[in-house]
């Protein structure tokens, strides 16, 4: 039998990633800055959202299962959903694999334009990296989702109810 000569301590010593003091300090500063910015952005976004909600009543008729799953995923992640984690959450909710992650991403951008979701940069220094943003559902988004679900429920009830009862 071949002897196992792998020295795990040597491997750990040599290959376990170790952060340098400089990296740790730099990361601390960056994260603190990001959190401060994020909190500020969140307040501004909430104010803008309130304004928009007063103006718009969302139309829920166009929302398909995919869109509802997307809104539910954003809501479940409570404002900490990135496009990738939202996609994974959607897979959980819809119980099927999302083969085209880009569709999720594009729909998020579309929904943001419509005021159904809002987003803030994870790293304020990189506001243009669209896949590095946290997405949160807005009040309009919640209303649209509730309307779409109610619509589905009504449709399902009509199908179930005998026509000449």
């Amino acid at each position: 039998m071949k002897r196992d000569d792998t020295n795990i301590d040597e491997i750990l010593k040599q290959y376990l990633p170790r952060a340098s003091r400089e990296d740790i300090e730099a990361a601390g500063e960056t994260v603190l800055k990001r959190i401060r910015e994020m909190r500020f952005q969140a307040k501004a976004a909430a104010a803008a959202e309130e304004k928009n909600a007063a103006k718009n009543t969302p139309d829920a008729g166009w929302l398909h299962d995919f869109h509802i799953g997307l809104l539910m995923a954003v809501e479940e992640l409570q404002g900490y959903g990135k496009p990738v984690s939202i996609t994974l959450k959607m897979e959980e909710i819809l119980e099927e694999p999302i083969v085209w992650g880009t569709a999720v991403f594009l729909n998020l951008l579309l929904m943001e334009r419509m005021g159904l979701v809002s987003s803030s940069a994870i790293d304020p220094d990189k506001p243009k990296e669209l896949d590095q943003r946290y997405f949160a559902i807005t009040q309009s988004g919640r209303e649209a989702m509730a309307k779409a679900l109610a619509l589905r429920q009504r449709a399902a009830d009509r199908v179930r109810r005998p026509r000449f009862a």
Partner: peptide, 21 residues
């Protein structure tokens, strides 16, 4: 937090995100 996250993921980028989360 960063140090632990970096040791597991091996990615500075991910470790920063984790620290933030």
């Amino acid at each position: 937090v960063y140090r632990a996250a970096y040791s597991v993921t091996g990615s500075k980028h991910d470790a920063q995100d984790i620290q933030q989360d």
